[in-house]
Amino acid sequence: MNLSPDKQREMLRQMLTIRHFEERASADYHAGKIYGVVHCYIGEEAVAVGVCSALETGDQIISTHRGHGHCIAKGADLNRMMAELYGRQGGYCKGKGGSMHIADFGIGMLGANGIVAGGISIVTGAGLAAQMDGNGRVAVSFFGDGASNAGPFHECLNIAATWKLPMIYVCENNMYAAQTAAAATHAMPDVAGRAAGYGIPGVVVDGNDIFGVYQAAARAVARARAGEGPTLIECKTYRWRAHTERAGQPDFRTAEEIEAWKTKDPIARLSGQLIAQGSMSEADLKALDQEALASIAASVAFAEASPFPTPEQALEDMYAA
């Protein structure tokens, strides 16, 4: 694996940024500064960062309702992200989208999506465009175990496999579709096994091992760029927090299960590896953590300084010129 120490530190910095962004988003949601709903990605950071570390700027991704991690891993601007959560003019969508609808088409982030499996076909269209352009770019669909049971997942895998589209389908299997256990809704334990039905590679990786995720993604990207078609990667992982931050929602998971997964923290795992291999010191880690925290504090300051939209702006952006 050819990852320079700098790149490995950058991966850790991104994971720390995601974690701190979400801790702040959760706190500010409960403080009433963020509206509607927030879905936290905490515990799954190695998937977004591991996959996006294998991509180039011109590659495109699409996200889910749990989208902050994918945005940050693809290089989104934290200020505009936080301003969007705060419902401000300075947000990515000028306050029209909120947490579930952040997009940055300029960096190839085609949007978080409030519909489970809603993004899979859209990003497959980006993969078709990349193939027609012949520019060697790839497209990545992030989705959960719940989406793997929905029709568009199967339709798109068949189309991408048939047309050999430069696609990487990344299933973030956090073992629960909202509150329902995957074990109760999947006929087979591995989503990746379904790849066989479409004649494409299906790979299961430990989603809390960022290097394992990165390697699987890098192989899939190379295959896609070579015109050999899509790959399905299943990352086994776990979300630490409830499905959403909304109060009063049931969470049937046991405390023992949640605590057991917290011992597999992908951030502690990576930082431990970097310290053990001498790539960084405890002091370096602390500095990196402080850097991430400072960037989140700055994003909150930016959001708070950004004005709310005026009511009349509700009528803007209906149609493109």
Binding site: Q60, I62, F105, L110, G118, I120, S121, I122, V123, T124, G125, A126, G127, L128, A129, A130, M132, D133, A139, G151, P152, E155, C156, N158, I159, T162
Partner: peptide
């Protein structure tokens, strides 16, 4: 393929690209 859900969405992604 007869997969209108996928193709309708693929149109959106191709248009955005």
């Amino acid at each position: 393929p007869i997969a209108e859900a996928a193709l309708t969405g693929i149109s959106i992604g191709a248009a955005g690209s």
